[in-house]
């Protein structure tokens, strides 16, 4: 297992290199550059060229790439062109809110979706099953931002009046500052963002469990008189868990890097907002660092999921 993990970790290096190269060159193909943003609309061409020179954007691409790669190897992600602050500090400050939102969302999704999926499989083709699947279809179709606004309206503005909102409508509180407020500030965004993940996991759970429930060993278990809940959880769900785990893993990585809409709607200072702001101002160092980080997330979560496979299914050995 250890050798496997080391081997997998080593494969992340070429992956991240390719991601880095891809990002670097695609960014340079995007219309606009940070020098143009800094120069604004009144600078002369000479002033614009001075800014390009100061930022090193006048150098050949391979020189820029070499300098950037050299710094990355040393753990230096550079300085934000827009704010002048170290990129590492900016990204580090955004990881906490994004990880919190991701975990809260995934927690909500798993706790709701798996029981729903198992229930739907158990009562396949019944009214319950169809209701769960309709719920999943709706959950998958509802735009996240729309749901966010509805939740803000219901829980913030409408339910108990403006003076007594049940839940805060915007912002983020650090866990170390106030645990209760930390949790309260995550409830609305987690449910808003979680609906689509609930839908995804519920459907996957239903399909997987349904498949397992047709197996001979389940019929045998029933013939032995084992209680239905035990059959569902111990026999069916465990054997159906690999595809569910895959979906949970991929959604984790996606949530961590792609909760842009939810972070904007609920004013959570996470990685998604940082990325969008950086793109709007063509802040190359931040964008490049973010993409590398996101690539790293995917690699790490894929590895974690693969390792978990082995624990859930004794037949899998690395």
């Amino acid at each position: 297992m250890l050798a496997y993990i080391i081997r997998r970790l080593l494969t992340t290096i070429p992956v991240l290199v390719v991601v880095g190269l891809f990002t670097f060159f695609l960014l340079r193909l995007t219309p606009g550059d940070p020098a143009a943003v800094i120069a604004g609309n009144e600078a002369t061409h000479e002033e614009y060229l001075e800014i390009r020179e100061r930022l090193g954007l006048d150098a050949p691409l391979y020189v820029q790439l070499g300098k950037w790669a050299g710094r990355i190897v040393q753990g230096d992600f550079g300085t934000s062109i827009r704010s002048g602050k170290p990129v590492f500090d900016l990204v580090r400050g955004r990881i906490g809110p994004s990880v919190s939102l991701t975990i809260a969302t995934e927690l909500v999704a798993v706790l709701v979706a798996i029981p729903l999926g198992v229930l739907a499989a158990w009562k396949a083709n019944s009214l319950i099953d169809r209701s769960v699947m309709v719920f999943a279809a709706v959950g998958f179709s509802v735009p996240i931002f729309w749901l966010g606004f509805i939740m803000i309206w219901v829980f913030g503005l409408w339910a108990f009046g403006l003076d007594n909102p049940i839940l805060p409508v915007a912002g983020y509180v650090k866990i170390g500052d106030d645990l209760w407020e930390y949790v309260r500030h995550l409830i609305l965004p987690a449910f808003s963002l979680g609906l689509v993940v609930i839908a995804l996991i519920a459907r996957m759970t239903r399909a997987s469990v349904l498949e397992v429930l047709k197996e001979d060993y389940v019929r045998t278990a029933r013939a032995k008189g084992i209680a239905e809940p035990a059959i569902l959880i111990r026999h069916a769900l465990r054997n159906a868990s690999l595809p569910i785990l895959t979906v949970v893993g991929l959604s984790l990585a996606g949530l961590l890097s792609g909760a842009v809409v939810t972070e904007s709607v609920f004013a959570i200072p996470g990685l998604g907002r940082l990325a969008v702001e950086a793109i709007a101002t063509r802040d190359y160092p931040i964008i490049q660092a973010m993409i590398i980080l996101i690539g790293g997330f995917y690699v790490f979560i894929n590895l974690a999921v693969d390792i978990l496979y082995a624990f859930l299914d004794p037949r899998i050995r690395y």
């Binding site: 803000i152 913030g156 409508v169």
Partner: peptide, 11 residues
Amino acid sequence: ETRIAAVLTGT
């Protein structure tokens, strides 16, 4: 939208 909600609720 969130800004409006935030000022109306005193956030």
